[in-house]
């Protein structure tokens, strides 16, 4: 990787980012989930970072909800000229970073399940790699030119 040709983007929780230029998109994940979409034909990519599985239909349909975040990211890739059959997905996060969360809400699990359902069953975009669950947070960097994602576990769970 020659870092000089790349721009860097820190992805904030509840937002998404995709661009035609090569980027290193990075983010920190705990129970949150990120989907990295990569276009094998155009060699471009985009990523989201959502906090909760489903938008309940109230308030703004914000990409902090999984179903919205996945939909909006795919739409954004389409705007950049991507075709669905060229897209592949890599999924990260969904850890159980809090004990209580682990037992009661299963937010991490639900976040991952919504992604699988939407991407593979509804949109027919294949998840080619993933690192999900567990109880450690993750730091990931997505290279949008090559589609490669680097991951490092964090000592303490975050977001």
């Amino acid at each position: 990787m020659n870092q000089g040709e790349y721009s860097k983007y820190y992805l904030y929780p509840g937002s998404l980012f995709a661009d035609r230029q090569p980027y290193y998109i990075t983010t920190l994940l705990g129970s949150c989930v990120s989907v990295c979409l990569y276009d094998r034909r155009q060699h471009i990519g985009g990523m989201n970072h959502f906090l909760l599985p489903m938008w309940n239909g109230k308030g703004l349909a914000s990409p902090k909800y999984g179903n919205i975040a996945v939909q909006q990211l795919v739409e954004r890739m389409h705007q950049l000229g991507s075709r669905t059959p060229d897209l592949i997905a890599k999924v990260f996060g969904g850890a159980s970073v809090l004990e209580s969360q682990n037992n009661v809400f299963f937010i991490g699990d639900r976040n991952i399940r919504i992604v699988q359902e939407l991407l593979e069953k509804e949109m027919h975009i294949k998840i080619v790699a993933s690192s999900t669950g567990g109880n450690l947070g993750r730091k990931i960097v997505f290279d949008t030119l090559t589609g490669e994602v680097r991951q490092k576990y964090l000592g303490n769970g975050k977001t």
Partner: peptide, 9 residues
Amino acid sequence: LFAKDEEQE
């Protein structure tokens, strides 16, 4: 993440 680091995947 860009350093050669054992933890990195």
